[in-house]
Design a protein around this nucleic acid. Structure first.
Lengths: 199, 199
DNA sequence: TTTTATTGATTGATGAGTCAATCAAAAATA
DNA sequence: TATTTTTGATTGACTCATCAATCAATAAAA
């Protein structure tokens, strides 16, 4: 079997397998054996290519993040006006794929891991910053900078919060409802800036 | 040493120790030894009183929840009007103690565990429902029921989201800022219902 | 003496990481 | 073309550490 140039193929297979296994089990306490089996290779090979479980996990988060970034970039390009870009960002966050129970479970596991691993934390901070700054960029065209910052912070928090609530699967809020709630937040706060000027 | 009537004392000590250790390490993958040592007893005693690690963890979540409930009840009683009750609920959620990094780390760990343990999930659902219904009760006095439901959902999501973002400790939003953001959300949405009636 | 509290010692399971050995494609050589 | 050498890919078997859970034994109250 050994053909040459297997490395990239195996790396990708292992990363994909890791994401699937983590999502299914809802924890980072999955075994290298589980991941390797899902990828169709031996545990030893996983160690051969990634050196340690920690490194494989980090590569897995990176992959998730890259995917999210690509989606956001594409969505932003397809949108013309700042207001449309805002909506596009919100919609991307709640994509069916992103909002799938297994994906959410994986995110939660990573957040929890970030309490221990500085590397993981740094990666998640990148995600948080990116969401915030993407929102901010569009908002700045629509209102004053300090208002924009406040609204971006609020919208980002609401998006993350809807994720968490989704993870409990109790009275699950639909994707559309989540989008509507976030859109409503942004719209209402933008409108408010140009209507009432009382205290 | 063996004095009689130790059981409740030890149970409490173990639960408190569990919460502290979990908060410090940011994971439920703490050892019974760690917890027992922190509580000043042997690991065997922890098993004696709780039967298993799982049971000790469940008792720990229950304790966190009970504390939160008591705080909420007290805060609600001290508030007179529905609008004041709303503010009180928001403030309780962001109490310094609740918002401490270790407490947040513990919450995250429990959310992650809820993906696996039905018992844990059920307890967290109780928390989510309670927050939502507390908010709802006050909101119903201030606006139409369907608006109240929407606003309660949004406020609850924002509170949870601010927690998550706090857990990353990047550009940490202060307690006051978190309260202000949530208050602003509620206020703006309530006001909006009585001002603009355009599309 | 009986009961309750408590622990040290032990067990059994699990899982990360290592390593020497194997296998087959590719490259070099005849 | 046929043969040998080299090298990347791959794994089974093993080590070492960790940890939950058990249990028999001890000590102090009642």
């Amino acid at each position: 079997m050994p053909k040459i140039g297997m490395e990239p193929v195996r790396r990708k297979a292992l990363v994909d397998a890791a994401l699937r296994v983590i999502g299914d089990q809802g924890t980072l306490s999955v075994t290298m054996s589980d991941i390797a089996r899902t990828a169709g290779v031996s545990p030893a090979l996983a160690h051969h290519y990634f050196g340690s479980k920690e490194q494989l996990l980090i590569a897995t988060i990176r992959s998730l993040l890259a995917q999210l970034r690509d989606d956001a970039v594409a969505a932003l390009q397809a949108a013309a006006t700042p207001r449309e870009k805002l909506s596009a960002l919100i919609r991307v966050s709640f994509r069916a794929e992103q909002f799938a129970p297994e994906t959410i479970a994986a995110w939660l596991a990573f957040y929890s891991e970030a309490q221990r691993s500085e590397d993981v934390r740094r990666l998640l901070v990148i995600y948080a910053r990116r969401l915030r700054s993407n929102l901010l960029a569009s908002l700045k065209s629509l209102c004053a900078v300090d208002d924009a910052e406040r609204i971006a912070e609020g919208a980002a928090a609401m998006i993350d919060g809807l994720y968490i609530r989704q993870s409990l699967r109790s009275a699950p809020i639909s994707i559309e409802a989540s989008i509507a709630l976030t859109e409503d937040y942004v719209t209402t706060h933008l409108d408010q800036l140009y209507e009432g000027r009382a205290s």
